[in-house]
Design a protein around this nucleic acid. Structure first.
Length: 610
DNA sequence: AGTTTCGGCGCC
DNA sequence: AAAGGGCGCCGAAACT
């Protein structure tokens, strides 16, 4: 993985450029180290064109080969024979690592060339360009660039749809060229050290994802069925609605005095209209305050319908095998760096369904949830003194904010903070935002600047350098003359925020609807994305801490992680999470007073964690 | 008939 | 009280 603790600790005070690997610095030291260690720590590995064998070669810190390529009969043999290797460089973790795991081989660190290509392209403002290694190689040689192969659709039950070698094979020599070029491009980034950390952390995330895909989330089909039966009643033959839904549909129809299908919005809107109630949609917040007897069963129907279609019996049939739910995690699947899953909806498991997540006998689930992660991240990236002081404490951040700015009204403080992060544009949020701005000027200025950058068509970056995509509509409409890259030093998401920026209130008056939406996106991007940066490093640190334990990482959801472990390891895991949090904060933000506390629970069932 | 978009809601 | 970021999923509606 990517976090040398000693190095980070040795660089106390270097807040803006955390180094991921001190041992790689050029100069006499590294030369001496190389002499002492005749075997390179970093190897580039490619599948042979027969698809089974492996070709590999050690490289130096600039990606130059340190000898001739070696051929091995298969991946597992190649890796198992070289335990001293510090980092494996390969085209795609999804291509290589599941095979290694299947052979019982784990690696400590890797560098995923195609993942790095995507991050580098985005940083360079070229996100739309193909990201495959083949494409990167073609660009280097000024040859026609092949488009990326289309993403495979989710295949329920299939464990391997993402892990077959794609049609984009690149031989070892090609990988070496692309890798060396990528190392060079890191140095051109706004903050090279952070960019190196970003690609290393994402590669670590790829390893975690592959391991979690292999492990699966412990899932009790019996409990799941029991929950479904309690909520939905019996299933009827023929696959129609279960009993409870049918009853609720009848209640709704009865309340309207005519047959109404509650799952058809047009039907519901028409029925309300006949009852003299005009609604624009059938969203819950719009109908729940209506005075009509259909409202209660309708809302109940929607809630249960959702469970039925998204996590019902057919979901169970499709996604749970041998007591494990195996979603396919895709690290960095969103523009902000959050993960997505390909099929199975693993990141949207309804709370009531979590009762089905049950540890193996004698094992426990350690459920760890970062407390108020996004406002804490905002404190760290903005450097706002007041917010950092608040976030330096491990207790309730919103209460502390409210004590400073909202006369102790916690709900108001929470709304204001979330409004600042999400870009609330009306209602009480604006008034609260003004109060927030007065007490925490730099924090609010940070997100306001990001919003302004978005409205003006500029890109923004997270703390580690993950970069927003261009506004598609801005491209299409050809809003001429708008720079697509921020001026040096003026980038939102950089540390070089104008010291006086917090003084002025920013009013989004002139912006068009589109550009305001764009501003809300970039405002949120710098916070949500930086939180993703941090969470990724946390995950990598936790992976390393648990590497020698029986514990397995089984779930990751933005700011929450579940470790499945033997009962007697649980307290050790809880401690490891706390340590990983400290480590992640230090590695990502350098010396910062901001703390990132976790709520942890040791449970047998996920639903008992909260 | 097959594919794409929409509406609504689950999670963070 | 009002409606703001990121996603995935499903069925229905709207298309080709």
């Amino acid at each position: 993985m990517c976090m040398p603790v000693r190095c980070a600790a040795g660089r106390a005070g270097s807040r803006t450029e955390p180094q991921k690997d001190c041992r790689r610095r050029s100069g006499p030291l590294s030369v001496a180290a190389a002499r002492l260690a005749p075997v390179s720590e970093r190897w580039v590995l490619a599948l042979a064109d027969d698809g089974r064998g492996a070709l590999l070669v050690p490289v130096d810190g600039a990606g130059r080969p340190l000898g001739d390529a070696v051929r091995e009969p298969d991946l597992a043999t190649a890796v198992r024979a070289r335990p001293e290797v510090y980092r494996w460089v390969w085209r795609s973790t999804a291509e290589v690592y599941p095979r290694l795991l299947a052979a019982g081989v784990r690696v400590e660190r890797c560098y995923d060339i195609e993942d790095a290509e995507q991050l580098l392209l985005a940083h360079e403002g070229r996100l739309g360009e193909p990201r495959s290694a083949a494409a990167a190689l073609a660009r280097l040689h000024h040859r026609p660039v092949p488009p990326d192969p289309p993403q495979r659709a989710a295949e329920p039950g299939s464990q391997s749809s993402l892990f077959e070698p794609g049609p984009v094979h690149v031989p070892l020599e090609g990988l070496l060229e692309v890798y060396a070029d990528q190392l060079r491009r890191h140095e051109l980034a706004l903050h090279p050290g952070r960019m190196r950390l970003l690609t290393a952390a994402e590669s670590a995330g790829m390893l975690v994802a592959a391991e979690m895909n292999a492990a699966g989330l412990p899932w009790s089909s019996d409990v799941h069925k029991q929950v479904l039966h309690e909520l939905l009643g019996e299933r009827y033959a023929g696959g129609g609605e279960p009993r409870r839904l049918a009853e609720l549909a009848d209640e709704v129809s009865e309340a309207f005095g005519r047959r109404v299908r509650p799952d058809l919005p047009a039907d519901v809107i028409k029925a309300f209209a006949r009852a003299g109630i005009r609604i624009r949609s059938t969203r819950r917040w719009e109908i729940e305050s209506l005075d009509h007897p259909a409202v209660k069963p309708l809302i109940e129907y929607k809630k249960l319908y959702r469970i039925w279609v998204a996590h019902g019996w057919s979901w169970l049939q499709d996604w749970v095998r041998e007591g494990r739910f195996r979603p396919e995690y895709l690290p960095g699947g969103t523009v902000t760096g959050r993960w997505v899953t390909n099929g199975g909806g693993a990141l949207q498991i309804p709370k009531v369904i979590r009762r089905a997540v049950v540890a193996d006998p004698g094992w426990r689930l350690v459920v760890a949830d970062a407390d108020q992660l996004e406002p804490r991240v905002l404190a760290a990236i903005s450097g706002d003194q007041g917010l950092m002081e608040v976030a330096a404490r491990a207790d309730d951040l919103y209460q502390a904010v409210s004590d400073r700015a909202f006369s102790g009204d916690r709900d108001m403080a929470k709304l204001a903070v979330l409004g600042a992060v999400y870009g609330q544009t009306s209602g009480d949020g604006l008034k609260n935002l003004a109060l927030l701005r007065r007490r925490f000027p730099r924090a609010v200025a940070y997100v306001d600047d990001a919003a302004r950058a978005g409205e003006e068509g500029r890109l923004v970056r997270t703390w580690l350098g993950r970069t927003s995509p261009r506004a598609a509509e801005a491209e299409e409409q050809g809003e001429a003359g708008i720079p697509v890259l921020p001026d040096e030093g003026a980038a939102s998401g950089s540390a070089s925020m104008d010291e006086t920026a917090g003084a002025d209130e920013w009013v989004p008056g002139y912006a068009s609807t589109n550009s305001r939406a764009r501003g809300r996106f970039t405002r949120n991007f710098v916070v949500q994305g930086s939180a993703s940066d941090w969470a990724l490093v946390l995950l990598a640190a936790l992976r390393r801490a648990t590497a020698e334990m029986a514990a397995e990482l089984v779930f990751f959801q933005h700011d929450e992680v579940i470790v499945h472990c033997p009962e007697d390891e649980a307290e050790t895991v809880v401690g490891a999470i706390g340590q990983a949090s400290l480590e992640a904060a230090r590695i990502v933000f350098g010396e910062t007073p901001v703390r990132f506390p976790f709520s942890t629970a040791v449970v047998e069932c996920y639903a008992d964690a909260k």
